[in-house]
């Protein structure tokens, strides 16, 4: 019975997608499923000029929504997920093993980002950028410099706080404040964290994703939970903004390039990944985005002033108090459930 429905679904999808893909055949192309604004457009143009392969970028806004798209529809050649989501995709058998002989520039990748827990043999994942999650705040409007997640629960900032609207990032603040791991598998700890978020709700101006950058640049709020690279980008535009990795600890992440099993243009995908690993390209990208590159050789090419900026390059001490996300397995549903409760509660 279930099969029939899947056949129907496939027919439906096939017919709708054939309408879309009828145009633009016979041309070398590559479909890159990337976060919004997460690559320097000049870099893409350079790749197309050099190889004749045109790159179509499709944006996603959370790892979770990306996963569902990839699992249910194919067609992407290169994807840029974060660590814990790579773990889930590998476990679900969605990813193609990379042919490292076609990615010689992989040698430039920093050893710190090789052999990570989700890809111990470096078979699936080519690191791209890394960063942390912290608080970006307007230094002209806070009562004292902020160094703790507790600032997000400070009633003096009522209506001036932006939270990040994706489940793992939102749960990081309360879990760390309570001294728990961001990868907790304990229902009691999770409920405590969710209760804190519900308590915080009257103080929150909005739960946003990507648009929070514009809001902070425009002075629409005093503080926001943000990724370090985005914080760097905001600081380029508004120098009153300061980024901090709270003392209770936080999340460190590394995003990287993977190729799904369903990719139609695998050869082009390898070429693209190799291109992005060239030190000069990685440096360009990193300077444009404000994210720290995972490419060791690129560091020498980056503007030294930027390298000294604490947002751009977190200290060892800061990194030491951060932990990677790990895939939660079935406990994911519990995270989703409490997160819905937070958003729905009045």
């Amino acid at each position: 019975m279930k099969k029939i429905f899947f056949v129907l679904l496939c027919v439906f999808v096939a017919i709708t997608s054939s309408f879309l893909s009828a145009c633009g055949k016979n041309k070398e192309e590559l479909i890159f499923y990337n976060w919004q604004d997460y690559i320097d457009p000049d870099v893409v143009d350079m790749f197309t000029e050099e190889t004749g392969i045109s790159v179509i970028i499709e944006p996603f806004d959370t790892n979770e929504s990306m996963y569902i798209k990839v699992k249910n529809t194919g067609g992407y050649d290169v994807i840029l997920p974060s660590d814990y989501m790579v773990q889930r995709m590998v476990n679900d058998g969605l990813l193609e093993k990379l042919d490292m002989s076609k990615i010689p520039n992989y040698s430039h990748i920093d050893d710190n980002f090789k052999n990570l827990y989700f890809d111990p043999a470096n078979e699936y994942f080519v690191p791209y950028m890394w960063g942390t999650v912290g608080i970006l705040y307007d230094s002209t409007r806070v009562y004292e410099p902020i160094d703790s997640w507790e600032a997000l629960w400070d009633e003096r900032y009522e209506g001036e706080i932006f939270m990040y609207n994706s489940v793992r990032d939102a749960m990081t603040a309360p879990l760390k404040m309570l001294g728990y791991s961001v990868n907790t598998l304990d229902a009691g700890e999770l409920d405590e964290a969710a209760a804190l978020l519900i308590e915080q709700k009257p103080l929150v101006k909005a739960y946003l994703g990507e648009p929070v950058k514009d809001k902070m640049i425009g002075g629409e709020g005093i503080m926001a939970v943000m990724y370090s690279g985005d914080a760097q980008f905001c600081q380029f535009e508004n120098e009153n903004l300061v980024y901090t990795i709270p003392k209770e600890g936080s999340n460190i992440f590394v995003d990287g390039l993977v190729i799904p099993k369903t990719a139609p243009n695998k050869e082009n995908a390898m070429k693209f990944i190799d291109f992005l690993c060239r030190p000069e390209i990685a440096a360009l990208n990193s300077e444009y985005l404000g994210y720290s590159t995972a490419n060791r050789s690129a560091l020498e090419l980056i503007d030294p002033e930027l390298m000294e900026n604490p947002i751009f390059w977190a200290t060892d001490e800061e990194i030491a108090r951060c932990e990677f996300f790990e895939d939660l397995g079935d406990f994911r549903d519990d995270f989703d459930r409490v997160w819905s409760e937070v958003l729905i509660g009045n």
Partner: peptide, 21 residues
């Protein structure tokens, strides 16, 4: 609404796009 409160449309969108239910 800034994700402050969910309407039924958002709840459905969430089930399909992020919660995968």
């Amino acid at each position: 609404g800034g994700g402050q409160y969910m309407l039924i449309g958002n709840l459905i969108e969430n089930q399909f796009l992020t919660a995968y239910d």
